Amino acid sequence: TRVETATETAWISLVTALHLVLGLSAVLGLLLLRWQFPAHYRRLRHALW
């Protein structure tokens, strides 16, 4: 049971790290898009909202 718990903890930390990385890359990508294509971003936002 001790090994299982350790594996579970490792998986949880791995998944958390993955989610953090994905979230950060998504935010960075959005910022980059907004910085590179302001007109396109505004049009996209206008279409979405």
Rank of each mutant, 00 (worst) to 15 (best):
V21N: 02
R43M: 09
L48F: 04
A6I: 05
S25Q: 09
V27H: 02
V3P: 02
L18E: 01
L32F: 07
H40Q: 11
L14D: 08
G29W: 10
L31T: 11
E4Q: 14
L24S: 02
R42Q: 14
L48V: 10
A47G: 03
R34P: 05
S25K: 02
A26I: 08
R42D: 13
S25W: 01
G23C: 14
H40A: 14
L18A: 06
S13C: 14
R43P: 02
H46D: 10
I12N: 00
T16L: 09
Y41E: 06
T7A: 15
E8Q: 01
L22N: 06
L32E: 01
R2M: 14
T9Q: 11
T9D: 15
A6R: 14
V15S: 04
L44W: 08
F37K: 03
L31G: 06
L44C: 09
H46G: 09
L18Y: 02
A17V: 08
A26Q: 00
L44V: 13
S25R: 07
S25C: 15
T5G: 02
I12G: 03
T16C: 14
R45H: 00
T16Y: 07
R45G: 01
F37Y: 12
T9I: 09
T1G: 05
I12C: 06
R42N: 13
T5W: 08
R45V: 07
E4T: 12
H40L: 12
L31E: 00
Q36H: 14
A10N: 01
W49E: 01
R42S: 13
L31P: 05
L14A: 05
A47V: 09
R43F: 08
W35N: 15
L31D: 04
E4P: 00
L18W: 04
A47P: 04
L24Y: 03
T16M: 11
Y41W: 15
I12P: 02
V15D: 00
R34D: 00
L44E: 02
T5S: 02
L30G: 13
Q36F: 00
E8C: 02
F37T: 07
G29D: 00
I12E: 08
L33F: 08
S25N: 10
W35S: 11
L24P: 07
G23S: 06
L32A: 14
I12M: 04
L32S: 09
V27A: 03
T5I: 01
R43Y: 06
A47F: 15
L48R: 06
A6P: 01
A39S: 12
A26N: 00
H19W: 15
E8F: 04
S13N: 04
T7C: 01
T16V: 13
L30H: 01
A39W: 03
I12H: 02
L33V: 10
T7D: 01
R34L: 06
H46I: 09
V15E: 00
I12Q: 03
L20E: 01
E8W: 05
R2I: 13
L18Q: 03
I12L: 09
W11H: 05
F37H: 14
L48W: 12
R45F: 04
L48A: 09
F37S: 06
E8Y: 01
A10Y: 01
I12R: 02
P38D: 13
G29N: 03
V3R: 02
A10T: 04
L24Q: 04
V21C: 14
R2S: 14
A10S: 11
H40V: 09
S13M: 08
Y41L: 14
T1A: 15
L48C: 07
A39I: 12
R43E: 10
L33Y: 00
H46K: 13
E4C: 04
R2Q: 15
H46T: 12
L14P: 01
P38M: 11
H40S: 10
V27G: 08
L48E: 10
A17E: 08
H40M: 12
P38H: 12
A17M: 12
L31C: 15
L14Y: 00
L44T: 08
R42Y: 14
L18S: 08
Y41M: 14
W11Q: 03
L32Y: 08
L28Y: 08
L33I: 05
E8S: 06
V15R: 02
R34N: 05
H19Y: 15
R2K: 14
V3I: 11
G29M: 12
L30P: 01
R2H: 11
G29I: 14
A26W: 06
G23F: 11
H19P: 02
T9R: 08
A39Y: 10
R42T: 12
G29C: 15
R43G: 06
W11R: 03
V3H: 00
T7Q: 07
L24R: 01
L24C: 08
A26S: 09
L14K: 10
Y41Q: 07
Q36G: 13
H19A: 15
L48I: 10
A6L: 03
Q36R: 15
H40P: 09
T9G: 11
V21D: 01
L33S: 06
L48M: 11
L32Q: 01
A26L: 13
L28H: 00
L44P: 03
F37Q: 05
R45M: 04
A39T: 13
R43T: 12
P38E: 12
L18R: 05
